[in-house]
Design a protein around this nucleic acid. Structure first.
Lengths: 267, 267
DNA sequence: GTGTAAATGTTATAATATGTTCGTTTAGCT
DNA sequence: AGCTAAACGAACATATTATAACATTTACAC
């Protein structure tokens, strides 16, 4: 077949056929460009963009500025930055304060969650600590830190979420003892109740506090006054509660009477 | 494809595609230079710097003056990729044969190793199976497969190796029962002894066979006649042994007398 | 033909990427 | 240490691309 015929075959195609052709392009190179495809198929750039949007839904491509690339997921990668963080700045500040509670030689438990993940980032340069966690994100963040031994709890990988839960996790957790547990929460009631949005996580959280000498709750102000599916305890069960100053002062005063030391960070 | 075409493919790429290409440069060399990449992709040095900054954010590389080097995490990734390609065809063929042993609804154990990782790739479209594994690579490969429930064993993350070992792993494994265990090996003695290069892995392998009704050993011919640090059992303990036809026939005949069903694949 | 829905093209505006300049920092050398 | 050339990063200007809303064309049933 001559080249002119080949080119002609690419024009006036129904959309589905064109999308199939676009998909073939990825076999040769790792990325395609919108402008290149528009020329090749003799359609407007807008049409190509719409095609790529369709392909993004069904195929394994990811749109970028100027084109699209194959989403070749790395091995050993547990996507955790998928979701956009809500109170990113507050969470980082809370994590910085939590970092100050950690001393060399300690055994820590780090719960699942974005705030505890921020803490994990700060723990990379710690010396001689052990981190026990059910979170694959925390584990992959710390697995190359020279001063940190990472113990991953066993269990079922929750679908769409890089962490472990289930009876195996609970059983595994019972094998350990730790100095300090850091936990997040999906909601904190005005009465000081701590809530998780997942029942299995709540059970794990409860056990964490039991096997740790002390525990520390990390939650930004947006969680206060929220409730969620499962209650895993109250602020009376924790030793430290770190939040940001945007939290209502009256609440914090009430919480303090329950027992925990309240630490607030500016944000 | 001629060289001129190859070069053309690197130009006028959307930014994300270029970043992917840059990342692949590290597979060959351990470092890249800004000026070299700028020439290669026909963009300004500033653009390359910005690309490198993006890759650094993704924790893929670490920037240096004049270029960038791989992070430990990515070195591990490429190391794994390289090992997969050693006898890659044989490993894939063996994995394909192993896949045929698996039926819907079964509970499987997948050991650490590159051959079992190839099997994991083939199991992505399985229906309603459960995979129990100490390998983070296997877990990460299967974590988004809709028909697969992944159970990760707990334990200590071995430094420089994405898998779990230790007493916790062994204890965790005891909690489960499986239909079929797939294992690799670092060496198989001419007498049928199975070897691991790590003592802790050997202990885990032994337990795997105990908690699984049947077990299947996957190893290409290059492993036969090799020995390694720790012996975890013999071929008499396994039910299936899948290898490739490049294995010496005399050996296989001897192995068959020990009990396992020997399956060979062309390669 | 005519009506209708889907696909495509067009335009204006916003977002993003790239190149250039220039003052600052760095690595390597004597 | 002090020097030099290279590399870096910030800020700006420019060019490219994305998005949404609307207009147009096409396809197809009746």
């Amino acid at each position: 077949m001559n080249i002119r015929r080949q080119i002609a075959l690419l024009k006036n195609l129904p959309s589905a056929a064109r999308q199939t052709q676009i998909r073939e392009r990825f076999a040769a190179r790792s990325g395609v460009s919108v402008s290149g495809l528009a020329l090749e198929f003799d359609v407007s750039a807008m049409t190509i963009r719409r095609d790529l949007a369709v392909l993004e839904d069904q195929a394994h491509i990811q749109r970028t500025h100027g084109g699209a690339v194959l989403t070749q997921r790395m091995m050993l990668e547990f996507d955790y930055r998928g979701r956009r963080e809500n109170n990113g700045a507050a969470k980082k500040a809370i994590a910085r304060e939590a970092r100050k509670l950690v001393q060399s030689g300690q055994r820590l438990i780090l719960d699942t969650g974005t705030t505890t993940l921020e803490l994990a980032v700060l723990l990379k340069d710690a010396l001689n600590i052990t981190v026990i966690t059910p979170s694959l994100a925390v584990a992959s963040e710390l697995q190359h830190a020279p001063g940190v031994e990472v113990i991953l709890l066993g269990g079922v990988i929750r679908r769409g979420s890089p962490d472990l839960t289930g009876p195996a996790t609970e059983h595994c957790l019972e094998l350990f003892a730790a100095d300090l547990a850091f936990q997040g929460a999906d909601g904190i009631g005005l009465d000081g109740a701590i809530y998780n949005s997942d029942l299995r996580l709540a059970r794990v959280d409860k056990i964490m506090r039991r096997v740790a000498t002390q525990s520390c709750l990390l939650a930004d102000h947006s969680k206060i006054g929220q409730t969620a599916l499962a209650r895993n305890g109250t602020l009376a069960d924790v030793d430290f509660f770190i939040t940001n100053t945007a939290a209502p002062a009256a609440c914090l005063k009430r919480f303090a009477r329950l027992g925990p030391k309240i630490i607030t960070v500016k944000s």
